[in-house]
Design a binder for these strands. Structure first.
Lengths: 253, 253
DNA sequence: CAGTGGTCTAGACCACGCT
DNA sequence: GCGTGGTCTAGACCACTGT
């Protein structure tokens, strides 16, 4: 079956705008023409222009700001989270005044942390391998680099392991060396970390916190930190803006 | 007195439809009311209804089919690709007539494979650590499970390593035991696999092959297979439908 | 054929950011 | 106040899927 497939006009306009951005005719960070200007240029109704912009916005090429205009999106620096990000660098622990350089948290990062004690939900209990209702420390963390939100993490620790220790003092955020180093200060030696990677659309809270444009997906990682067979930490959904993040892993034979 | 933030009608309607689907009033796989029916029910113009449906479609809750209607999306089985999927099970190699059970390819899967010889592009040459122009075997693979496309992979091998071997005979697809087992039959012992995980919007070709609804993101993995320090295979973009796939990794301290 | 979603028009008024 | 995008209307015709 031959496909004559006449291209709708809004798609042709989307193609043209995409071409201009790729060719540099509209530089990254610059405003694209306003909807009324495009209406005049292409001789179509405004709704058609808006559909075309929807297409390239859902591709992440532009972002719109109410009252200001639509911008060609500047190339965002991609943050690569490497397989060795949980390795403890000795000086991170030796010099506690220093910020962490692992665990996805860099020197330039700002963090906003909240601690709370909660009983384990059935899902958390299953991830931990403990009975529901067991008391946990919940740590909610929003990490920003250069004023751009990067990562929203909710992680959990067994309360009887961490309660009362200075290591988990909320005022000592961000944690030097990351959570693996903090656990080591408590005598807990992490032997294995499991990560489960998914992609999905953000919840409203996640979209707000990470300042995501509508339609942008996130990378959601569920992490379990193990000391031998014991689960000592669970990060139940670390959310990353998908277009600012890549994850690197190594698998050994 | 600040203006109370009134929710737009299309969002309220999207919320209502979301609620009905979550509550089971619209069962998974069933048609939601037609646009004209919703127009009558909510007393709004059809464009407003279409905007509401756009919202829940971009969330992956419904899929629309031209001429048929809009369906609440049935729960798709999620395929978990585990960290041990590259381990060779002895019988996979011992019984070559048997289908692979590793490498993300299961017994029920159908594959559509195409082989081709090409010179290395600069990007591929960099990933391989060889000079550009070096001849490679390109293997394009579309994997389907139960008639649902799952995975689109383009991978590359050094041609002088595989040329003329029966192992890489296109008629022997799918490969028993996956690519690691096939390399072992050539005497190449894989010691390490690196994977780089990203999420992005699909190209048109990818969206067609994986039968993705508009706006659905993909998981894109770049893989490098190593034998000691030598790169013996590169999968430059394995594309998975993001909502049908999750990836599991383990990191050892 | 009737019914569905896909595309498109030509308006209108509102909310927001700037000057 | 002015220009921007956000929401909404009330139509129209087309393309696809079914009977």
């Amino acid at each position: 079956m031959p496909t004559p497939h006449r291209q709708p006009r809004y798609r042709a306009i989307a193609d043209e705008l995409r071409r201009r951005i790729a060719a540099g005719a509209i530089p990254a960070g610059a405003l694209i023409p306003s909807e009324s200007a495009l209406t005049a240029e292409f001789h179509v109704a405004r709704g058609t222009i808006r559909e075309a912009i929807n297409v390239i916005r859902s591709e992440g090429l532009v972002v719109t700001e109410h009252g200001r205009g639509t911008y060609a999106r500047p190339d965002l620096p991609v943050r690569r989270l490497a397989y060795d990000r949980y390795q403890i660098k000795t000086h991170d622990v030796a010099l506690p005044g220093q910020l962490a350089t692992t665990s996805g948290v860099d020197k330039d990062d700002q963090v906003d942390a909240q601690h709370q004690e909660i009983p384990a939900t059935p899902k958390l209990a299953q991830l931990f391998g403990v009975e529901p209702g067991r008391m946990l420390l919940e740590r909610r963390l929003l990490t920003s680099a250069h004023a751009v939100p990067q990562q929203l993490t909710t992680s959990y620790y067994l309360l009887d392991m961490v309660a009362g220790t200075t290591v988990f003092d909320p005022s000592r955020e961000p944690w030097p060396g990351g959570h693996v180093a903090q656990l080591r200060l408590l005598g807990v030696i992490v032997t294995k970390i499991q990560e489960l990677v998914r992609t999905r659309m953000p919840t409203g809270e996640e979209a707000d916190a990470l300042r995501l444009p509508p339609g942008a997906p996130i990378i959601a990682v569920t992490r379990r930190t193990m000391a031998d067979v014991r689960v000592v930490e669970v990060a139940c959904e670390m959310a990353f803006s998908a277009d600012r993040t890549e994850l690197e892993y190594e698998i050994y034979a």
